[in-house]
Design a protein around this nucleic acid. Structure first.
Lengths: 259, 259
DNA sequence: TCTGTTATCCATAGATCGATGGAACATGAG
DNA sequence: CTCATGTTCCATCGATCTATGGATAACAGA
């Protein structure tokens, strides 16, 4: 069992799929994959993000790499991992959807942390597009800054949850705030909304997160943030829009999941 | 660890998702799930279909049930399993897609069995819809009869691969034949097409299979087959169309995958 | 009630996996 | 060349998983 490339040579299709399945048996690996769908990171950053020893994280990443779900890039002495493609993110999304729909416990956990009540009133992607065009909302990306840099909604400003309270002043109090994060299972945006509401602001979450936005074929801007004073620069000024690989029909490519 | 419902009580979101992941670590479980996305079956039928001892198959099904991916129905002395919902099939589809895209070996296996060369010329769903309307194609469902009964493309006739040669006479030689099966990783349709072409007929595969057809929001007919003489009864006469849960935009809901 | 059929449960033995600390390797800076 | 840093490889122990045969439970029919 050395040459893993051709080892198991007589392995059927399902054995191959099981190699992918092996990645998502372990909670930490799912967490890592989820992170990697947001942005590429070094091994050390990943290990720290999910609370794992370096060697353990590396081992997990090896498993993921053998299944071809992640790829690496070397920069000097450090190695950056990234998701190996669009399909990987779609797979993770499908897994999350399934979890949301089938596992009552997921729902309970989310509710227990307080994301239950207000999550009912979310902004759809279509609605956000429309209101962003007319300029009467502020869109904030509450994920860590690296993930914002790796890709964000055009016109959104980066306001990581941890800095939210300190930088509240930057927000235009007259406008409604729409917060988004990693996806339906991520609690960053719901927490941000709770914080903002406690301050008397009007705030809602976007349905789902950036991966779903991207998968819907909507434009994504990469690169650092701009001064962040103007709340709504006209959309479409992205530094690098996604190539039009996905059909840009957008608006609910996936059937809805919300309860 | 008895009350699995609330055991692991203090488990995070990713632990919950890993419960789903656990299902797809094992090749046979993926195979079972794939089968169950086509039609419900008894334990015995499943065990036989995938070549497993009864007790082993039952154990696997238990795992899948604990993860809430399958549900059961009792009829007399036998228990029927079925996929627990639309999202399950979507998940399996995403896994297959990912396998197709990432695992070079999958491609090699498919090619090795001879599905490589002709698979390039497939019929899109949109094209099939159009040509079925004008009535110049025969659509054949080459899956086992149970799966046809559980759901098939309106107007398609059931012609399981194993009976194809014997029932060749039923086909209208003047029309092109479009064969479909379980999905991109299923070899039934490609083999059928190869057989038909060897007989001099014009034949092509449909892209993907029935689950993808259903997921695209297109109508699905359930129930036994009709006399199967008339090659193209007008579509839309389905005995029970799928409820309009999914958006019926159809035509390429997912971004394409074909190489 | 007794019997045959179908499915689940159980105990066991063999295989695989995960976490961990320390060694080994590659790279860049003195 | 020699160090320091970041990452991967390795050996090990403990935990978990799988297959299997046989026991048990649910059900139908006489």
């Amino acid at each position: 069992m050395e040459h893993e490339t051709q080892a198991d040579g007589r392995a059927g299709l399902y054995e191959q799929l099981a190699r992918i399945g092996k990645v998502v048996v372990h909670p930490k690996r799912i967490e890592l994959l989820d992170l990697l769908c947001q942005a590429e990171r070094s091994v050390e950053a990943l290990a720290q993000a999910v609370g794992l020893k370096l060697s353990t994280a590396s081992a997990h990443l090896q498993v993921m790499r053998q299944a071809r779900l992640v790829e690496t890039r070397r920069e000097g002495t450090r190695v950056y991992y990234r998701a190996a493609g669009e399909e990987v993110c779609r797979f993770v999304t499908a897994l999350s959807d399934l979890g949301w729909a089938r596992l009552a416990e997921v729902d309970q956990i989310l509710r227990a942390i307080g994301a239950g009540s207000e999550s009912a009133e979310r902004v759809t992607r279509a609605e956000l597009l429309e209101r962003a065009r007319s300029g009467d909302v502020v869109v904030i990306d509450v994920r860590p800054i690296e993930e914002y840099t790796a890709g964000h909604i055009p016109g959104a400003i980066s306001l990581p949850l941890e800095h939210l309270e300190a930088r509240l002043g930057e927000l235009d109090l007259g406008l409604e705030v729409v917060a988004y994060c990693r996806g339906p299972l991520c609690l960053l945006a719901p927490e941000a909304v709770a914080t903002l509401r406690a301050r008397g602001l009007r705030a809602r979450c976007l349905e789902d997160g950036l991966p779903e936005w991207r998968q819907a074929g909507l434009p994504v801007t990469t690169g650092a943030e701009r001064p962040a004073a103007a709340p709504s620069p006209p959309a479409g000024r992205s530094r690098r829009d996604t190539p039009a690989t996905a059909p840009a029909d957008g608006h609910e490519a996936r059937p809805g999941r919300r309860r």
